[in-house]
Amino acid sequence: MLDSWTSDAPAKLFGVSDIGVTPRQLKVSRGTSDKVFRGFILAGALFSLIVLALISGFLMYRGFGIFKDFGFSFFTSSKWEAAADDGSAPAHFGVAAMLVGSFVVSVIAVAIAVPFAMAVSLFLEYYAPYSLRYVLTTILDLVASIPSVIWGIWGYTILMPHAVGWSKTLNHWLGWFPLFDVPAPIFERSPFIAGMLLAMMILPIVTSVAREVYSQAPRDQIDAAYGLGSSKWGAMRTVVLPFGKSGLIGGTMLGLGRALGETVAVYLVLNLVFKVNFHILASVGGNVASLIASRFGEASPYELKALMAAGLVLFFMTLIVNFIATTIVNRSKVPS
């Protein structure tokens, strides 16, 4: 706090800022324990940055050759072909289809999960009796700890047979809209099913964050709404939801981050096809993470480089999502 006095605050305080007086700089001498603590937390903060830099450095080092060989077409091409053993066909790698697939599946997941998470968290925080709240919160925490391979198996064996029926219904009624149209009547392993599964997987984390921020909504503002004749829902809409907006966006982006990076579950319920596809009910899709998982075991050294490059793209995509999230969160904070 003392450091903030190196600003021109004292000058302004005494009304001398406009007459060219340079603000006084304070030198702070800290005690040993303060220095040790500062060093400790600085090391902690730097450690995460170092890990981040090491990961990106490693991926860049291993994948750089691919960017050099394929240039911008690595991002725009959907073709993923290893070189033929006899050398008759050269290798070609592009992640456009997987990038679009990652985006489509994640957006579906977020679009389904966020309204549910809002409803669940409002219910838990403001409507549910204490005993029910305790039980439901425990169950949600439990759901968050289910491994993704279990989700994948459940999605494949239980969710998919039902979801195929829902997909057919959507296609029947809304097939005129390109998003719900299918080139061939195959509805298994579609982005829609993968998105639904991912929605269930990210629901606990989004709900948990939303519940946390909704619980901190100012009680006096809620009372003010009641004091003006508002219903409970009116108070939620006017006070709690705007107050929790930035937190909800943060939680959504956390969920989106998980959805973008999800591997095994998506791999099991999504048909990996190297083709840009916006027909969410069609059995065509993929994402970067499941591409890496599916190819890693049998990749040639050169394809391995391509997978590292794909990993780097995913890494930066996640960083960009987090950066955008932070910007939105900072802009949408409700003044208190």
Binding site: D220, Q221, A224, A225, G227, L228, G234, T238, P242, P335
Partner: peptide, 26 residues
């Protein structure tokens, strides 16, 4: 009922007009 609280409790994210119409709209 309508209450004027000691600490006023105006909704900080709403402008004056929306603060005042809040109760009526509710």
């Amino acid at each position: 009922c309508a209450v004027v609280f000691q600490d006023l409790r105006l909704f900080p994210h709403l402008d004056v007009l929306r603060n005042i119409t809040f109760g009526l709209r509710a």
